[in-house]
Every structure is written in structure tokens, then in C-alpha cells.
Amino acid sequence: MISLLLIPASLLIFLVFGMPLIRYVWLSFHASSVITGLIPIPNNGGNWIRLINDLRFWQDTIQTIRFSFVSVTIEIVLALFIALILDQSCKGRGVVRSLTLLPWALPTTIMALGWRWIFNTPYGPIDQLLNHLNIGSLNILSSPNLTWIATVIADVWKTTPFVALILLAGLQTIPEDLYEAFRLEGGTPIQALTKITIPLLKPYIFLGILFRMAQAFGVFDLIQVMTGGGPASSTESIAMYAYINAMRFLDFGYSATVMLGGFILLIISSFTCFILVYHSTNVQEKITS
């Protein structure tokens, strides 16, 4: 009987999540563009064959993975340091904690505009500084080898607080007397970090990776505002490519295929993370017991 009560919620999830997904899958097997007069015509998986042979899609995939992997790695390391600092008890800790969260609370478009200005050539502060140091302008936002680094920096700046918050929550589940017992046994603070904190924080680190990977894989707004995918598509993400196909080329069938391709890649990477999380959840149970 209880399962009957689940029907409204399941229905809602199906309508807002399942239906669009099914529609996407259906659309990815149809040609639906200006050429067909936006009428979906079955094309026997032609979209998928095109996707597999689409070099721009694979380039975007590599760029998306590069962006996600580099920024998430940096975020986790930085967030661990920040969380360790925020976990210390001192005066005004609440204020510092709130301030640390500020970048995360800022709308992405606004902070992306700010970072675009910071990296602006020749008026942005970074260029000004480089000129002062007689290094000369790096043309950060117009050199294909550097621009993606700028987007990573902006992403790290924005989302590190989020990861730090997750890790801070994890740190607070570790009882203080474990550290005290370790201290009495002769452990140094560094050993406490490597032998107690990090092993016990593992589930939270994986949780942070999982959340951030899912977000970074679908990155759109930050890159759209900061670089528009350029220069020379060097920062374009899968989500952006899907958007361009739908909104610029009005090829909805192929756009759906690109989005699904990205979705499958995301599932694979998330699943990998999930297995890692699963293997460390037993550690979490031990903390709570």
C-alpha cells in the first residue's frame, strides 16, 4: 500500500526528468532541422553516425574532460586546505566562513563577466601587472593555449567554497578525541592529517568529486560569458556545442544527439566516481557508529 503513496512523486520525477530524456532519445534518431522544416523525420541513426565522425564533438569532449579534471582536482586540494583552516576554532569564525562562501553564492554570469574583465587585454589588471613587470601582454583570452586555463581559474575561484563546505562538514564528523589519542601516542600534526583526517574524509572527498564532476561536465554559462567558446573553439564544451547546434544551426535532432553523447560520457565518469564512493561508504558508517 505504501508504494501507492510514491506514485505522485514518481510521476512528477517522470514528467520533469524522464519525459524530456525520452524525447531526447527519440529526437536523436530523427532529422529535425530547418531543412526538414522542423518536422522530425526518422533517419536510421544517421545522427549517431555523424556524432561518431564529428571531430568537433570529440575535440569538445577532450576540452570538457580537460576542464573538468583539472578544475576539480585543484578545487579538491584547495578546498581541503580551506576546510582545515575553517575547522579551527577562533574568534569571528562564523564571519570568515560566510565570507568564504561568497564566491559560490555569486551568479555565474556576473562572476564570469568579472573574470573576463580581469583577463582583458590590454585593460585588465592581469595585463597591467604583466606590463609593469615588463613581461608583456599574454593575450590570455585570445590565445587558444591559455584561454582554457583562464576558465579553469574562474571555475576554481567560484566552486572551491562549495567543495570546502562539503569537506568541512566531513571534518566536523571526526571526533576530537581521535586527534588527542593520536597526540598522546606521539603523532605529529602532519601524521594526523595523513593517517586520520584524510582517510576519514575520503567519503566526503568522493562526494565532492561526484558533485563537481557532474557540474563541470555540463559547464555552459561560465564559458559562454567569458569566452563564448573561443578562441577557435578552444574552450567550447559539449553543452555549448549542443546549444550551438540547436540555437544557431537550428538542427534539433543533432543537438539532442550531442547532448545525449555528453550525457553518456557523464554517466560513465559519474559511475566511476560512484563506485569509488561506494567502496568508501563503509568508512563513513564507522565514523557514525
Binding site: P175, L178, A181, V283, K286
Partner: peptide, 10 residues
């Protein structure tokens, strides 16, 4: 010996 035993759970 701590009240909570303070054994390392991992």
C-alpha cells in the same frame, strides 16, 4: 583510556 575509547574507525 578515553570515555569514547577514541579508536581509529578506519
Amino acid at each position: 583510556v578515553f570515555q569514547s575509547y577514541a579508536l581509529f574507525p578506519h
